[in-house]
């Protein structure tokens, strides 16, 4: 089982996030591995571990590779992935890729998966449900379309037919928009998992130590044989025109309940024509 996880480096949700010149500000030291990609890494690790435990593969077989498309500071995300136990970390970096939109991002990630697949077959690509900066939730779908692979999105539960089954079917349960669905597809496939799919593990001491010095592979667009027209600002199908902070909210009216708090709340709503 060889699994590629795509993981994004994003501004920490607990910091002041913003824009400068229509680009997201990425302050060194304030970015993290997109939390929802920890669920993707966890799902991938568990699939490989389950296969080893069941004896489907040898104790050292199976590999989880994380790919991120980012500038050099994206290494923060890869180091975190190493701490969680992934085997390889690849950063795709190139000035020509700056300003990529969803399609450009998916094209680059797809090229990286293809390159990995040319070394040795890739069985599965796992992604998070959304990047917490843009909250698009579309890169997994586009990645599947670019790779021409079946895509199972927003899994809450993931089941894989055991090694040795005639077709390795991946089955997911998803609950979205008040609809519960069971979907299945044969490997190789693209899978995105939600934050309800699992509880990401805490890194162990040994892995934390090892992660500091573990090698990060850096690939350029030339390494991926990418056509420069698909990615970067030049290939983007949207152009950001403006980005402005919203005006601050006025000071809130705060009432401490001394027996009349509910009446005050009702009064606020009625007085402001909100009922």
């Amino acid at each position: 089982m060889r699994i590629v996880v795509t993981a994004k480096y994003v501004p920490d949700i607990n910091t002041e996030r913003g824009f400068q010149d229509c680009r997201v500000v990425r302050n060194a030291g304030e970015g993290t591995l997109n939390e929802l990609d920890e669920n993707a890494i966890e799902a991938a690790l568990r699939l490989v571990e389950a296969e080893r435990e069941s004896g489907g593969v040898g104790p050292d077989d199976g590999e989880v590779i994380v790919v991120t498309m980012a500038g050099t500071d994206g290494d923060v995300a890869l180091r975190k992935a190493f701490q969680l136990g992934v085997d390889r970390g690849i950063r795709v970096s190139d000035d020509a890729l700056a300003g990529s939109d969803y399609f450009g991002t998916a094209a680059v990630l797809a090229a990286a998966v293809r390159k990995l697949g040319s070394e040795e077959p890739v069985d599965l690509v796992v992604t998070g449900m959304a990047a917490l900066d843009g909250l698009g939730s579309v890169v997994p779908t586009l990645l599947g379309a670019e790779l021409g692979l079946p895509t199972l999105n927003l899994a809450k539960k993931v089941e894989l037919a055991p090694a040795g089954s005639p077709a390795r079917m991946l089955t997911i349960t998803r609950e979205i928009d008040d609809v519960t669905e069971h979907l299945s597809a044969p490997l190789p496939a693209v899978l995105s998992v939600t934050d309800a799919a699992n509880q990401p593990r805490f890194p162990g001491f040994k892995l934390i130590m090892a992660a500091r010095t573990k090698e990060i592979e850096v690939w350029s667009s030339a390494d991926l044989g990418l056509d420069s027209a698909v990615a970067g600002a030049a290939g983007a199908r949207t152009e950001t025109l403006s980005a402005a902070p919203r005006p601050e909210r006025a000071e809130p009216e705060i009432v401490t309940d001394k027996g009349e708090g509910g009446v005050a709340l009702a009064d606020f709503l009625i007085r402001n024509d909100l009922v």
């Binding site: 809130p252 401490t256 708090g261």
Partner: peptide
Amino acid sequence: EICDFAVVGQLADVLPQAAAEI
């Protein structure tokens, strides 16, 4: 920090009273 109006109190007291008043 992000609200327009707030009641500091027990929700089991405040919400039913607000509902009844409305």
